[in-house]
Design a protein around this nucleic acid. Structure first.
Lengths: 340, 340
DNA sequence: GGCGCCACCCAAAGCGCTTTGAGAAACTTT
DNA sequence: AAAGTTTCTCAAAGCGCTTTGGGTGGCGCC
């Protein structure tokens, strides 16, 4: 069923039918009703490609996931982010298009996304500290919002980020206040902007109290469970093991907890753990009492907000860059306690 | 840059340029080279919408995620599935379009996906035992592959599934062979087909050894960490607690482990746990020695294969339904041991 | 009656591509 | 040299929609 057939069926012109469907005022209410009813009955919905071609709008948003040889895994937060963004999109009648692009042909990929024209805007995931995509997308004139930031990029651009620095500073101070002096950082990959910020904040908080950094207590890798386990196990075997752990994700923290148990220690009593918590649907931090003391920031909410920002930029391309910094809450669970 | 401009630039007709780019034989090698070079230099890529309109192909695959009020979370395996499928798609020049559709307007949603025509085929996620989508999509004539199966649907259709029944039967038998008699099932939502199959297999395995079912040891919920924790904690507090747990996902198993530790017991010695393992990138089951004894089946691989099947069906729409049953391996970790 | 003015509707062009049907040019064959 | 082939190229139609630039008929008003 296409517009032409629908128009013939109704004995109207395509123009009138199209206008009736799209709410233009040039058509009488009576006709509009008739058209809408027929469309519903015959289960007509306009062909997206044709509509896009005619309007120049794709009614779709691109989400580009960087994939590289080193870490070809998809970030586990992605599902929740999309769930949040999707809610916003579907209200506005937008679809999600996902592209997995290899770091190597990143530039090419973005250019071709642009000229294929099947998205009206892009959400940039996983920004690096110095991320060439921002300049590229600006040059291409494709509206975009970065989930995160790129500290080294000085261009103005739209982003939505969690205040990772502040969160990790508070987390570190929290452990310091409990008397911990040997605090380990089990961080994500530090070429990723968020991880870098966390690292800097951790270092600053320690420096503030005059505590020297110990490279043996600082790690940076992909945030898997096994990574948390291995790192914590090794650190706990040191001559002077850490009494506190600052961990970059719940999954990794679960690995840390495993190592702690295996070492015959108890989390919250012998060793304190504080983690960042993205508030993922399937990995809630406890039910009533949180398992982990955590800096919490809902990635689902971030998705919703980033989507809103992007839609605003699409509606109004001349708009100045939008930015939004979400504060993480520090929630106290049972994984932390005074240093022994 | 569009085709017309490119053609003018080259002083050729649009026809010739189009044919050169798409590898048609009617154009000389010399011309083709010239065209390809110019396209690369001028960074031309064809407009996807226009191309789709002309060819009737969208070069995109729809992934439809069911969302309902009860469980609006996105399944954590989705990211890995997409990563696998994406690899296949990008080789073939296909994109991924994601639609989050509410259970309520499912029928409407699929119809409109069909008539909007922005995907050439669909992967159906999360099939229920009796899933109306299969009949609907068959009627609509839109190629699709189901990730999983719907036991109650008798129509022929294409699917790719893990042999969940066999996996859970083996897992149950494994525990039985170790001498366990009180074995708990911490299952997913049993209106989901995979969970139902697991339940049936578990019951059959117990029945085979003449062991009566105990409703107090059987749960069915969304597979979160907290669910695993709560279920195990409650069961371990029973007068005759289970000595073995059969768990539906790693995340949930991690919750079970937490409950076991908290009860002052040791997993693998006091209590045995066996779980299904989707082999997710961020949640590998241990490094060299698996943490959990598990039935393992890579969801990423499933994504790749399902994508291949779908592309085949799109290439050849008259093709008979394709089906593929992947066997899970039973891998032995340190979470199981003889019953005490 | 003639005029202007709405309200309503339509034909046709155009979005950027593919593809059909056909023509010009070059090259063989008789 | 004429005819037949093959090679290369092109103009134009069409995919399903929106949108421009009119048209038509009915109404009130002078």
């Amino acid at each position: 069923m296409n517009l032409k057939q629908l128009a013939e069926h109704l004995d109207l012109s395509q123009t009138t039918v199209s206008r009736a469907l799209n709410g233009y005022p040039e058509v009488s209410e009576k006709t509009r009703e008739k058209v809408l009813r027929a469309a519903r009955e015959l289960n007509y919905s306009p062909n997206a490609r044709a509509k896009g071609l005619a309007t120049g709008r794709a009614h779709a948003i691109g989400h580009v996931l960087p994939i590289s040889d080193q870490h070809e895994m998809v970030n586990p937060i992605f599902g929740d982010f999309i769930a949040g963004a999707g809610q916003t999109y579907s209200k506005a009648g937008y679809e999600v298009v996902i592209s997995l692009v290899d770091d190597k042909d990143e530039e090419q990929a973005y250019r071709s996304i642009r000229s294929r024209g099947n998205v009206d805007g892009i959400i940039v995931h996983g920004p690096r500290m110095t991320d060439g995509r921002i300049a590229l997308l600006t040059e291409l004139g494709l509206p975009f919002v970065v989930h995160g930031r790129a500290s080294q990029v000085s261009l103005p651009y739209s982003w939505l980020d969690t205040n990772n620095g502040r969160a990790f500073q508070r987390a570190t101070e929290f452990l310091l206040d409990l008397g911990h002096r040997r605090i380990a950082l089990i961080n994500g990959l530090e070429f990723m902007d968020f991880a870098h910020r966390r690292r800097v904040a951790y270092e600053a908080a320690l420096a503030d109290r005059g505590i020297a950094l110990d490279p043996a207590l600082m790690r940076s890798e992909e945030m898997t469970e096994v990574y948390g386990y291995r790192s914590a196990a090794e650190m706990l075997a040191l001559d002077t093991p850490p009494t506190g752990f600052l961990v970059s994700s719940m999954i990794t923290a679960i690995g840390v907890r495993r190592a702690i148990h295996e070492a015959g220690l108890e989390m919250g009593r012998d060793v304190s753990v504080i983690t960042h918590d993205d508030d993922l649907g399937y990995l809630r931090n406890g039910h009533d009492v949180p398992i982990f003391t955590a800096t919490r920031s809902s990635v689902r909410l971030a998705g919703m907000r980033a989507a809103e920002m992007l839609l605003e930029l699409i509606r109004n391309p001349a708009h100045a860059p939008l930015t939004q910094l979400m504060e993480a809450e520090l929630i106290i669970g049972s994984s932390t306690g005074p240093a022994q």
